[in-house]
């Protein structure tokens, strides 16, 4: 059961930003993550500012120049089924389709998906952990089988989004509106590590909201895929996931972005895996080298060492699935 709050329906981005200036104001788009957090008392809300009625924040459309604009309110179901996304960016369609459950994909928005709070069971549960202002990360010495093997520092969450690694692989940009105006950054720069700020998962400042995502035009020869490993066939976050966007020209990889999910507090780009692919044909040996590169520097906790071989296996499979266009 949720505690009480006041409700503000914003008619425009400007109104929303203004309403979010109040203490305890929380943004409502699809509501799935927000209402769950309020119900679990992960945090409370003084007011709930709804942007669901702002039409300009919705929609998926091609822009001149070949980019595709995805409004922050586009649902995961819309992204997963949209012909433009399915044709041009399979990695994104597959990632969106693999998230949560059908009902949640109908309700959950891409903006909310990028900004969702962590699924760490200590964070969601009845524990005052570092991310909630406490002094202890319970996961570090506790039940950490689902926690990170990269990038942990005082907090060992993994970023739960499936879509985020796909968008980072596609080098998408995200537009942000806030009290100081609007800005656009790479999705890659949206998420931050605990060492940057242990209380937040994104670089959004107070009062800022995501308004849209722009995915650049697909380059000739672009092949992309999303491979997710989970314990349960539906409504389960990734144990590990791999998003790859690679450009193949004349039988060789000319450019590649390899982004890992389920292994770090943010979508984790693996430059080593990318380097192992670029300049080579996609074959078993390239896949093995990329997989070996991807797990370099992994620092497993007591219960999640399995993520190292699992990540290797998933990455090998993802690479091999791109062997043919």
């Amino acid at each position: 059961m949720m505690g009480s709050f006041s409700y503000v329906r914003a008619g425009s981005v400007k109104q929303a930003v203004a309403a979010l200036a109040h203490d305890g104001a929380r943004l409502h788009a699809g509501g799935t993550d927000l209402l769950g957090c309020l119900r679990d008392r992960v945090f409370d809300a003084g007011s709930v500012v709804s942007i669901s009625g702002i039409e300009e924040l919705g929609g998926i459309a091609a822009l001149s120049g070949g980019s595709v604009r995805i409004g922050a309110l586009a649902t995961l179901a819309e992204i997963a089924s949209h012909p433009l996304i399915r044709e041009r960016y399979p990695v994104l369609a597959e990632a969106a389709a693999s998230a949560a459950s059908p009902q949640l994909r109908n309700q959950g928005t891409i903006g909310g998906n990028l900004c969702q709070r962590p699924r760490c069971w200590y964070f969601r549960g009845d524990f005052i952990c570092t991310r909630k202002g406490g002094s202890l990360c319970y996961a570090f010495d506790g039940e950490n089988r689902y926690h990170c093997i990269f990038g942990g520092d005082g907090c060992y969450i993994v970023h739960p989004s499936d879509a985020a690694p796909a968008l980072v692989a596609l080098d998408a940009q995200v537009s942000i509106a806030g009290p100081g105006g609007s800005r656009t950054i790479a999705v890659e720069d949206l998420h931050i590590l605990p060492k940057q700020d242990i209380r937040r998962e994104t670089s959004l400042e107070a009062g800022e909201i995501v308004t849209e995502i722009v995915v650049p035009p697909p380059r000739a020869g672009l092949r992309s895929t999303y491979r997710k490993v989970r314990e349960r066939g539906s409504w389960d976050f990734a144990l590990v996931s791999v998003a790859i966007a690679a450009v193949v020209a004349a039988g060789k990889v000319s450019a590649a972005r390899v982004v890992l999910g389920g292994v770090a507090p943010k979508p984790w780009r693996s430059i080593a895996a990318e380097a192992a692919l670029i300049g080579h044909a996609i074959d078993e040996s390239a896949a093995m080298r990329a997989a070996a590169g991807a797990v370099e520097g992994a620092q497993p906790l007591a219960q999640n060492a399995y993520k190292v071989p699992l990540l290797r296996g998933a990455l090998e499979e993802a690479v091999m699935s791109l062997a043919r266009p």
Partner: peptide
Amino acid sequence: PTQLASLL
């Protein structure tokens, strides 16, 4: 997979 990945 959390068990089998390691066992394999």
